[in-house]
Design a protein around this nucleic acid. Structure first.
Lengths: 235, 235
DNA sequence: AAGTGGTCTAGACCACCGT
DNA sequence: CGGTGGTCTAGACCACTTC
């Protein structure tokens, strides 16, 4: 994170959040930013590109760099994986670990996680609350060769934070499949809804930067509270 | 689209689809690609970056560029806006235009489209089928100052194609909010489902490259057929 | 140690927007 | 036409993986 363009992107982002450009909705020009940060054009453009991808700003050729005024409040951001705690603030999220055990991968999971059948996996079932309302039911599998140890205490907090900060794993990217499925009896009970009502469901496959799959999850969301946000581009 | 890095990205993508790297799952090195296309390092890196964003490949520092083996078959891709016809093939999609008229923007829509109250808008309601199964109900509003003319014939095909190719509009990016909502009586009938069942719903706001909003839509999807795909990154 | 991707520089020229 | 972003080049050095 100590590379220049990431630091500059972060500083610009903080300026935006602090309201520095609130009046004009416009950032300094690329040239001005080069002067401000004493770096080359391409470094500025890398920083800007990062902010464009994060949905903070957009660029108009010949005109300038403008602030993108999309409220991200209350939405689960699909572009950038951070975990619920980071997204909403750890104090709003409570987690109950319902099951946590080591299992051996069967054919179906091996297919998804591209691992051998019989590979040891952590299987974790959690119920997570937001502002004390049942929010999601989550089933997840972690490859024990990559994540050698998880206990209840860790699973009650953020497993992603644990993986990144304690295990120093480099998480790279994730595939997410999103669909709607009728709730079964158990899940409807857990979420305080009725059987047969819809659920917003997300299936995640998480890859390390080296391309290995660390975990897969199925997340069943309470449709009353869960809203996702995605920022698309035309190509 | 005639810029070098986009052309190169397209060629590499076609090679991938054609199965050129199927055995190794690995692309040539950046250096080799520079030679192959006779361009500079940064042009190759721009092309590669584009393919990374599209979820085609991933890079591992010190190791190489690898093919990302995610099946995109049958999913609506959230990253890149193309319209259903392009996504699934125009022959699989049929569209029935249920309503098409010019209205004046009220407070609620003006808020969403950041236009003045009273601005003329096209209001279009469509039912779209995939493989002859009812797939989505769509309500959309187009700013008439930007899209001055739409008729039923156009709305039966792809409005996006019309905007890009006939009107030469430069579509830039879009916000998408995704949630699940119980179907009302009318929509359940239209989709051949039961009232109260869930629906996967997407609210789109589409921006031109200059930051103006051309249209907003609410798309109610048949949960039995609609699956979305999103590719996330850790930052 | 060799190979390969990641960051950064300095500079040139092009394309588009607004006055 | 001046201002501003978009593309491209050539080259240097760093960081990580692999052997």
């Amino acid at each position: 994170m100590e590379v220049k363009y990431k630091v500059i992107a972060k500083e610009i982002e903080e300026d935006i959040i602090a309201g520095k450009y609130e009046s004009s909705k416009k950032l300094p020009t690329v040239e001005e930013l080069m002067d401000i940060y004493s770096v080359s054009r391409s470094t500025i453009r890398q920083a800007i590109k990062r902010l464009v991808e994060m949905g903070e700003i957009y660029q108009v050729q010949g005109s300038g760099i403008f602030i993108r005024q999309t409220s991200k409040e209350g939405y689960i951001n699909l572009q950038c994986m951070r975990g619920l705690g980071v997204e909403f603030g750890a104090e709003r999220i409570k987690t109950k670990v319902l099951e946590l055990k080591v299992i051996k991968s069967d054919e179906e999971i091996s297919e998804k996680m591209k691992c051998d059948i019989g590979t040891e996996l952590y299987y974790i079932k959690r119920l997570r609350y937001i502002d004390n309302e049942p929010y999601i039911v989550e089933y997840s599998y972690y490859n024990k060769e990559i994540v050698p140890y998880i206990n209840t205490e860790i699973a009650e907090k953020s497993i992603y934070t644990y993986m990144a900060e304690s295990l120093k794993l480099h998480m790279g990217f994730a595939d997410k499949v999103i669909y709607c499925e009728p709730l079964n009896y158990e899940h409807s009970n857990m979420l305080g809804l009725n059987e047969g009502e819809g659920s917003l469901t997300i299936e995640d496959t998480v890859f390390l930067t080296n391309g290995l799959i660390s975990n897969t999850s199925k997340v069943i969301c309470n449709y009353k509270y869960a809203k996702l946000l995605s920022l698309a581009n035309f190509n």
